[in-house]
Write a protein that binds this DNA or RNA. Structure first.
Length: 992
RNA sequence: GGGUGGUUAGCUCAGUUGGUCUAGAGCGUCUGGUUUACACCCAGAAGGUCACAGGUUCGACUCCUGUACCACCCACCA
């Protein structure tokens, strides 16, 4: 860009024709920039000098746009200010207008067909980022489109309490700001929860305003929060239902323990990080013990061997067959003595390692399972080596109280000196870490709550199924479709590997497990679950014996409540306060639920397909008997230009929507995230891309300004214009209308199948390349305000879902008198009678002729000011004769002859279109060498092309097998090319 | 280890069931520009053996197989 300015600037200085006093200018910036140095940033203006010495000034920077240049007294200066669309002046105002008009509000009593989307609730901590922005843009397009198509459109906004994330953020903040080392201990449960709630409220306010900035047309009157009392009721109801169906149980099992956060996490919250590790091969049993060869065991975690209870081998492994069933006492250095039983288990692969696995039931899920299978045979009880604090248990002889790392080092050193290590081998090991704390996850035995995904107790389509089976069934039977469909595969794969879901967390922020324990009943009924009461309402005394009860201290996994989101947001809040009603009653009586559930589309990032989408399917089908949504649309991640993940720590490449919107507008941001992207694929975003769509928005704005100007010139009020076919005058008009109908059809069809990128591209290129570059330029000869206004109106409709702000702003200038906001307008329908391919074709011929003239001018370096002579020999004399004036103007032609008599023009540049030859004779200007070179090149291209087409048509099989149409088009191609080639050859001959 | 996706112009990406593709767009580059809105503009141009190797087909960027590289997801070989 700078290069352009610099060029123009120097040109001015070279010519020195300006005569403009370079000093004493009224602009303060002028003297600065008229020096030899141009400002590198914020180029303020550029000058161009005409022969008649009037000077045009343009300003380029946003900073200077507001200056009152037009006030300047400068007799011979014509000052032009670029009239650029400024989103920052319109967007907030328009959003307010929409909101106040009630356009976002859905009516549950409406007769219209329902179309609902649940907004994936952003975490109520922190801020909106691009991931949210792309989600909001996509969903807003869906919603606006369907609203305009006459559906009762509901988009429910809300926020998520994001249990672990929020609690840890607030705790860290308190630690940092108030120097409280352990806020949980110091503040206690009630106070801490209150503090978190406070912080959440603040953050929710920010998020609300950010969602508005994006232009999201969601129904704020229905905003929900995952911790709302009504949602809590739903959570408790579902828990209770699952408990009584036996799907929720409490069990003592090995779970994932996040040492840093001091809570369990689910399998899906684990990430794997490649880390360097050492594989130690340890002499486990000595030769003396076995009475043969010693037994070696390989391990990367030697410290856990302190808690082994068995050695597992493959039952058919001959090497160890004689040992199976025997107990051995192992004395580890340091004093820990364990008893291990050798067992045979099919899960052991004899080929891996030494073929012997040390079984540590309490520190490995797999070992735990092995132990479960062989409990009876194994002599010793499982031993816990590592505690919840990440330290070695006191009970471990010789290592108690050490950290895991210290214990490992000391233990290995001791083994080495006892010569009990056969080999040490470094290798890369995938280490489990918590997605939240990024620290190692320790498998530990704990008493927790689980959801059984295999129990066949769910009633679905008249069958008893397990939760897993229902989840598979809805996708397989296409009750729910996933876009793009390849994610169905990953979904099924995830289900295949799904194990019982651990839902209890040892944090305080969240929905508390609705279970109350009565110590008295428990004492009476023994250990078998007695004294547990699940209640949707808080209990203080035992319903059986009346003695005081204690609520379970744990809270539920965030995803438990998020999984209910599509419907828990639609239940009537008042009804949830009535505890005489069952969940079924509440659903039946909630008008929103009845009208809007199941929702239509779930739009979210593919990264939470398992966390959330799958669990919504699981919970919603079970709890309501309905699917949660019909279509899942998954978008990809937004990355930097280099393809990296955006992160706040790298502000150079990280794009913050809140900085972009004031600069380029929400419309531009939305377009830049939608056009050119395909669902499920990651995409890269950078500022130039956004600027490109800002330019498009501005182009639309200026096209509209132009049309308004034309209306004004013609003395017509655009509001009163009504389209009628009488207004059609030229082939260009017919072509415009015809292509516009096609555009309506394409846009509608495309949006129906969620092909947002393609639709966006079509709208972009129609508006810019066809409407602005051709039709508007063409119509400058003789304008047709009725068609212009009609076209603008249609375009505003079609573009509204993509760029709602600028279209709404312009709509105010173009809307028919009785119409209200664009957001409420009816989606256009194509008028088939206006589709006219002949006219499109005719206009195409005109466009072709003008383009050829322009190209020839450029090739021959004809000065732009110079008018040329053109001779056209054509089959379409009548057609082109009608367009004479336009050709003269747009091609800058002075003398134009049109006839159907092919003639030779030696000193001319020529172009051959189908059925038309355009010649530009220009004595003196024509460079015959250039013409010859051009023609020779063209000849070669044509010959190559013809070779291909001839070969095709000469192939019998092709002619026989290919559809008639295809053969026909090939024949036409052949004819066209042949005709062209003849002309080219003739010309070359004449030039020789 | 298992799986998925990608590889198309200098860059970022489209390409809808194989034929209208003689492969497009935007940005960037180059040449020009006092055009009836828009320099956030206009008119032109250059630039690609569609990663590679086979196969299916009358016909492959498109379907199949394999290879290479990149990215992601899943997975505790002890």
């Amino acid at each position: 860009m700078t290069a352009f300015y610099r060029r123009s600037f120097f040109k001015l200085r070279e010519r020195k024709t300006c005569g403009f006093p370079l000093t004493g200018s009224p602009f303060p910036q002028w003297s600065r920039s008229s020096e030899s140095k141009l400002p590198l940033r914020d180029v303020v203006y550029c000058m161009r000098v005409s022969g008649r010495s009037n000077v045009l000034l343009y300003t380029f920077s946003n900073a200077t746009q507001g200056l009152p240049f037009d006030r300047l007294r400068a007799g011979f200066l014509r000052i032009m200010l670029p009239k650029a669309y400024d989103p920052s002046h319109t967007e907030d105002r328009i959003y307010k207008m929409w909101e106040e008009s009630g356009a976002f509000k859905a009516d549950n009593k409406s007769e219209k067909e329902a179309f609902a989307i649940s907004m994936p609730p952003p975490n109520a901590t922190g801020q909106l980022h691009l991931g949210h922005a792309v989600m909001l843009a996509l969903e807003d397009i869906f919603i606006r489109f369907e609203r305009m198509r006459g559906k009762e459109a509901l988009w429910v906004p809300g926020t998520d309490h994001a249990a672990i994330a929020t609690e840890s953020v607030v705790i860290k903040k308190i630690q940092k700001e108030e120097k409280i080392a352990d806020p949980r201990a110091s503040l206690g449960r009630t106070a801490l929860v209150a503090r978190i709630a406070q912080s959440v409220e603040k953050s929710q306010g920010t998020i609300r305003s950010q969602i508005r900035k994006m232009g999201s047309s969601c129904d704020w009157s229905r905003e929900r929060y995952t911790m709302d009392p009504s949602l809590n009721r739903c959570v408790n109801e579902v828990f209770k239902k699952m408990y009584s169906d036996g799907l929720i149980y409490r069990g003592h099992r090995v779970v994932n323990w996040d040492i840093a956060l001091q809570t369990t996490i689910s399998d899906d919250e684990i990430e794997y990080k490649d880390t360097e590790a050492v594989m130690y091969t340890i002499e486990y049993l000595t030769a003396r013990q076995t009475g043969g060869d010693p037994v070696y065991v390989a391990t990367s975690r030697p410290e856990t061997k302190l808690g082994d209870t068995a050695l597992a081998v493959h039952p058919d492994d001959k090497r160890y067959a004689h040992l199976v069933g025997r107990d051995f006492t192992v004395e580890w250095p340091g004093g820990q003595v364990i008893t291990v039983t050798v067992i045979g288990d099919h899960s052991v692969d004899p080929a891996v390692g030494t073929g012997v696995v040390g079984v540590t039931p309490f520190h490995s899920k797999i070992d735990y399972e092995i132990w479960q299978r062989h409990k009876e045979e194994i002599e010793a009880n499982p031993i816990q080596v590592i505690g919840e604090d990440g330290k070695i248990m006191r009970s471990v002889e010789g290592y108690g109280g050490l950290s895991i790392q210290e214990c490992r080092e000391r233990f290995v050193t001791a083994l080495r000196s006892a010569k009990r290590i056969r080999s040490e081998e470094a290798y890369m090991q995938p280490l489990s870490v918590s997605y939240r704390s990024k620290t190692a996850v320790e498998p530990l035995p704990k008493l927790q709550w689980f959801i059984d995904v295999n129990g066949k107790v769910v009633q679905w389509h008249g069958k008893k199924m397990s939760l897993k089976e229902v989840m598979q069934d809805v996708i397989r039977k296409e009750d729910i479709t996933i876009i793009p469909d390849r994610f169905e595969k990953t979904y099924f794969h995830w289900i295949d590997n799904l194990q019982d879901w651990c839902i209890s967390r040892q944090i305080w922020w969240g929905h508390r497990v609705p279970v109350f324990y009565c110590p008295k009943c428990h004492a009476k009924q023994g250990r078998s679950g007695g004294g547990q009461h699940v209640s949707v309402q808080p209990l203080s005394v035992c319903p059986k014996c009346g003695s005081p009860v204690k609520q379970d201290p744990d809270t539920l996994d965030t995803w438990f409540s998020s999984a209910l989101w599509t419907w828990s947001t639609l239940v009537d809040e008042k009804l949830t306060e009535d505890f005489s009603l069952s969940l079924e009653d509440i659903l039946k009586k909630s008008p929103d639920f009845r009208k809007f559930h199941p929702t239509q589309v779930m739009e979210t990032g593919y990264d939470i397909l398992f966390f959330w989408v799958a669990r919504m399917i699981l919970m919603t089908t079970y709890a309501t008997g309905q699917i949660p949504f019909k279509t899942v649309y998954l978008h990809g991640l937004i990355r930097t230009r280099e393809g990296k993940k955006m992160s706040k720590s790298d502000p150079e490449t990280c794009i913050d929507p809140l900085e972009i919107i004031p600069k380029y507008g929400a419309d531009a941001l939305r377009l830049s995230m939608i056009v050119g992207q395909s669902p499920g694929n990651d995409s890269r975003l950078f500022e130039e891309k956004i600027a490109g769509y800002r330019n498009f928005v501005n182009k639309l704005w200026n096209a509209a300004r132009f049309v308004l100007m034309k209306c004004e010139e013609a003395g017509i009020d655009p509001h009163s214009i009504e389209f009628s076919e009488d207004a059609i005058q030229t082939d260009a008009d017919r072509a415009l209308l015809s292509d516009l109908q096609d555009l309506i059809k394409k846009t509608t069809k495309g949006l129906e199948v969620y092909a947002l990128s393609i639709v966006g591209e079509d709208l972009y290129s129609f508006t810019w390349s066809f409407f602005c570059d051709w039709y508007l330029e063409y119509s400058k000869g003789k304008t047709n305000p009725v068609l212009l206004v009609y076209t603008i109106r249609v375009l505003l409709h079609l573009l509204h879902p993509y760029c709602p702000f600028v279209t709404e702003e312009l709509w105010a200038h173009f809307k028919p008198k009785t119409a209200d906001l664009l957001i409420n307008q009816t989606w256009p329908e194509a008028n088939e009678s206006l589709i006219n391919s002949d006219s499109s074709c005719n206009f195409g011929t005109v466009v072709g002729v003008i383009s050829s003239i322009r190209r020839m001018r450029a090739e021959q370096d004809v000065e732009p000011g110079t008018k040329v002579t053109v001779a056209i020999h054509t089959k379409h004399v009548k057609l082109l004769e009608k367009e004479r004036e336009h050709i003269l103007r747009m091609g800058r032609v002075e003398k134009l002859t049109i006839d159907d008599q092919p003639k030779q023009h030696t000193h001319a540049a020529s172009t051959f279109l189908h059925g038309t030859e355009v010649h530009m004779p220009l004595e003196g200007l024509i460079d015959l060498e250039k013409v010859r070179a051009k023609l020779t090149k063209e000849k070669k291209n044509l010959e190559d092309f013809l070779k291909g087409v001839r070969a095709k048509l000469g192939n019998k099989k092709f002619v026989e097998n290919a559809p008639e149409e295809v053969v026909q088009t090939e024949r036409e191609k052949l004819e066209n090319a042949q005709e062209k080639l003849e002309k080219v050859e003739e010309r070359l001959k004449a030039l020789a």
